[in-house]
């Protein structure tokens, strides 16, 4: 089955996020009364896996090995069946 893993990578809470701080200041300058802004990135990975559990485990390995740097970042994974969910090949 074909899955899409949406991996959201964020700077850890204790790590400064200068990009978030800049967006925070910009939103304030527009008059928005925001309390905090944290930025991150979403990485969508499409791949084949026998079932959802295997897909989650594979996505977690990708997160640990490459997509996030555990020194400064944490990540969350959301796995869903790709729209054309049938197995390919």
């Amino acid at each position: 089955m074909r899955f899409i893993a949406r991996v959201v990578v964020r700077p850890k809470a204790e790590v400064r996020d200068p990009q978030g701080e800049a967006v925070f200041a910009a939103l304030r300058s527009l008059g928005h009364d925001v309390a905090e802004v944290r930025t991150g990135k979403e990485i969508d990975v499409t791949f084949e896996a026998p079932d959802e559990r295997a897909a989650r485990e594979a996505a977690a390995r990708m997160g640990d090995q490459l997509l996030a740097n555990p020194v400064i970042e944490s990540y969350e994974v959301d796995v869903e069946l790709a729209r054309d969910g049938a197995a390919v090949g």
Partner: peptide, 8 residues
């Protein structure tokens, strides 16, 4: 690790 400079 190295992250974005304080002032971007």
């Amino acid at each position: 690790a190295l992250i974005r400079n304080r002032d971007l």
